[in-house]
């Protein structure tokens, strides 16, 4: 079983990313869970969302304390939200930042783990037209983890986006482009 923890700020789409990822994985026949953490919900406040992914039924219904992957939608959360806490020793830390993995490691004194970075904010601004780092991060996540096949995910997400954006072609295309760019641009150590 693989466990993912998403860190974002209210409004950045951490919950949506977890749900979209769960829906894609189900279309592959995987067993999944996607759930947000419910606290006081305010735009801009730190929020977390979670995914579990497995080939067998998932029985656990407890919080995820030791994830395999941590995805950070907002670099400013790295220290205050203790994003590294509980991340497995060989776990992956995927961060939305213009910095290179080595720079992030040095700046925040992160020991061990594998660090990947992608400038999801910039990509989303250039493709979708506003700062929505969640979709591009999905593309980067799939590149570094290979949980699902990228081409098929794009196909599945096109269907989801059609529903979500009520056929708005510009938004659908922008989101797909953001996925593809992040898939190409993500850098790992």
């Amino acid at each position: 079983m693989v466990e993912i923890r998403w860190h974002g700020r209210g409004g950045q789409g951490a919950k949506t990313a977890a749900i979209l990822f769960g829906e894609v994985a189900v279309s592959y026949g995987k067993y999944i869970q996607a759930f947000p953490e419910y606290g006081p919900e305010r735009r801009g406040a730190p929020v977390r969302a979670f995914n579990r992914l497995d080939d067998n039924p998932i029985l656990l219904h407890s919080p995820i304390d030791e994830p395999d992957v941590v995805v950070v939608l907002d670099q400013s959360l790295i220290e205050p939200a203790k994003v590294v806490e509980g991340l497995k020793e060989d776990g992956i830390l995927l961060i939305n930042t213009p910095d290179q993995p080595a720079e992030v490691r040095k700046k925040y004194k992160i020991k061990g783990k594998k660090i990947s970075t992608v400038d999801a904010s910039k990509i989303s601004k250039e493709t979708i037209g506003k700062e929505l780092p969640n979709t591009p991060l999905l593309g980067a996540l799939v590149k570094i983890t290979r949980f699902v096949e990228f081409d098929r995910m794009v196909k599945d997400l096109k269907i989801q986006f059609k529903k979500k954006f009520r056929g708005n072609e510009k938004l659908i295309k922008g989101n797909i482009n953001s996925l593809e760019r992040a898939y190409k641009e993500v850098v790992s150590e």
């Binding site: 749900i19 999944i32 869970q33 998932i58 219904h61």
Partner: peptide
Amino acid sequence: TDGFILSHCLER
């Protein structure tokens, strides 16, 4: 069903 734990948890 259990509030939030299941009511708001996406599953297959």
